[in-house]
Computed example of a mutant assay.
Amino acid sequence: MSDRSFIRHVVFFSAKDKADVARIREGLSILGGIPHASHFEVCENSRADGLSGEVDVIVYAEFPDRAALDAYKADPIYQQSIDRVRPLRDMRVAADF
């Protein structure tokens, strides 16, 4: 078990229509305007692992503590991102560790 002093937040998305992957990435990228993360990035899956092709876009962020993660999710920009991305996405899987 790691003794790091931060939380990693990873979210995987798949597009209903592969033509919308760029729009999903753009909609998730606005989350970078929320100031609570110590690190934030949105990337498209490189598909280097042939067994994981269903993931199209990944959000990766680091937060100093649970309060910062909660504040990130409470920010109005978070809801704006949801409103833009939810209609375009199929799968969403999140993990915090």
Rank of each mutant, 00 (worst) to 15 (best):
E44V: 12
E54V: 12
G53I: 07
F40T: 06
E44P: 06
G50Y: 12
V21C: 05
V85K: 06
L51N: 13
D83S: 10
R47P: 07
Y60D: 09
K73D: 12
R92A: 10
D56Y: 00
I82R: 13
A15L: 00
A95V: 14
E26T: 04
R84C: 05
D56A: 01
H39G: 11
I30G: 02
G32F: 00
I7P: 02
I30E: 04
I77Y: 06
P35R: 01
S14F: 00
S81R: 02
S5Y: 10
R89C: 10
A61L: 07
E41K: 12
R8A: 11
L88V: 05
R23S: 15
G33L: 11
F97T: 09
D49K: 10
D70E: 12
D17F: 03
P64N: 10
S38G: 14
R8Y: 08
E26Y: 00
I30M: 09
F63N: 01
G33S: 10
I82V: 15
A37F: 00
A37D: 01
I34H: 00
G50D: 14
R4I: 15
E54H: 12
S52K: 13
D49M: 08
M91F: 13
G50V: 13
F40E: 06
M1F: 12
I82M: 14
Q80R: 14
A67N: 06
S38R: 15
D75K: 02
A67S: 08
V57P: 01
S14D: 04
Q80F: 08
A22S: 11
R84A: 13
G32Q: 00
V11Q: 06
A48V: 14
A95W: 11
A67I: 04
A94K: 10
K73A: 15
E26L: 01
A48C: 11
G53Y: 04
V10F: 05
D56I: 00
L88E: 04
L31S: 01
I34P: 02
D96S: 04
I77W: 07
R92L: 10
G53W: 02
V57R: 02
H36G: 04
S2M: 12
V85P: 05
D70Q: 11
I82N: 13
D70C: 05
K73H: 15
C43N: 15
P87Q: 07
V42W: 02
F13Q: 01
P35Y: 03
F40G: 05
V42F: 01
R92D: 05
I24S: 03
F6Y: 13
G27S: 01
G53K: 07
H39L: 12
V11A: 08
I30L: 06
A94S: 14
F97W: 11
F12S: 09
Y72I: 05
A19H: 11
A71G: 09
V11K: 03
G27V: 02
V59P: 06
R66L: 14
Y60K: 09
D17G: 07
K18E: 13
H36I: 05
F6H: 11
Y78Q: 11
S14K: 03
P64W: 00
E26S: 04
F63P: 00
R8N: 10
D65V: 08
I7E: 02
Y72V: 05
A61C: 10
R84E: 10
L69G: 06
I7S: 03
S5Q: 15
V93L: 15
D83Q: 11
F6M: 07
R47K: 13
D70P: 07
